[in-house]
Write a protein that binds this DNA or RNA. Structure first.
Lengths: 153, 153
DNA sequence: TTTAAATATAGATTATTATTCTGTTTTAAT
DNA sequence: ATTAAAACAGAATAATAATCTATATTTAAA
């Protein structure tokens, strides 16, 4: 576990909001020299604090505004069934995330598609065609109140 | 809604995986000139397909490995209660996302903290101190099978 | 404490990349 | 076929990243 001082934390917050800003711009916000900021960034990358730099796409702009959460229960929990299910579900483009969770159901999936029809299509032809699924329970997103990729460090 | 051809789609996929690669590197992968790639990227930014460029932080590296999903039911659904709740919950750093959903509960939250103790602290001192919350139901993440920010375009 | 080593910083220099510019080619509509 | 618009390539310029050298600061040991 690496130690981050207050400047590092501020820097990580800035990069989580906009990773394309120049080191010059960052240096002004942090009251540091360009080199100092540069070295700190390299250290954050090397130490694995910063995992990757990505472009975020606006769902609405590409007509993928329908978001659903999907609970899934497996018929059995043998090593083989679990592995197979996890492998298959990870392949599906519509599945943004899949978590093995505690509680009544085994898994929670976040699914992003075009509309309800696309979701139906996804359920029938992709998800439930995976073997070993016992039951599912879907919840549809009415409104996205908050959604961020930025973790407070 | 903007129209994206196959090259645009490939480009968006590349940027969703790594937005720091040079236009030169992208041009080689897309068999285009640097300028052509550059213009396409600018168009994707202007049209809103690309929302922002961010650094993604590895939870494990900053000791925030505990993830929970939290169902919440409000006591009432008056305009005032709903607004107030959504405002307050959006302020909480531990809440990565909050969705208003269909089904038995009103909201689904994704919460990221240090450990179970931090989660308890969060529930007691932050979440349930928001007024108008009726009941909650928490599910803990045992394993993150899949998690991506990249939408297939 | 005092000193040595390691680390962090700043400013200047160089290398790389982004951006702009100009002209050409392709595409689409008339 | 003709024209206008869009997309493209290559060259030139501007901006930024990355490196280098030298100080300053912190850290750890004596």
């Amino acid at each position: 576990m690496v130690h981050l001082d207050d400047i590092d934390k501020k820097l990580v917050a800035l990069l989580q909001d906009d990773c394309k800003q120049t080191t010059k711009a960052l240096s002004l916000k942090l009251n540091l020299s360009v080199t100092a900021v540069y070295e700190r960034i390299k250290k954050l990358e090397k130490s694995g604090v910063i995992d990757k730099y990505v472009a975020l796409v606006k769902k609405e702009a590409i007509d993928k505004s329908f978001v659903a959460f999907c609970h899934i229960k497996l018929v059995q929990h043998t090593q083989e069934y679990v592995m197979k299910f996890e492998q298959e579900v990870a392949k599906l483009n519509e599945v943004m995330s899949c978590y093995h969770i505690s509680g009544d159901y085994d898994y929670l999936l976040q699914v992003v598609v075009e509309d309800m029809e696309a979701f139906r299509e996804f359920m029938v032809n992709k998800l439930t065609s995976i073997n070993h699924i016992g039951s599912t329970h879907s919840m549809f997103v009415i409104n996205e109140v908050k959604h961020t990729t930025a973790i407070k460090v």
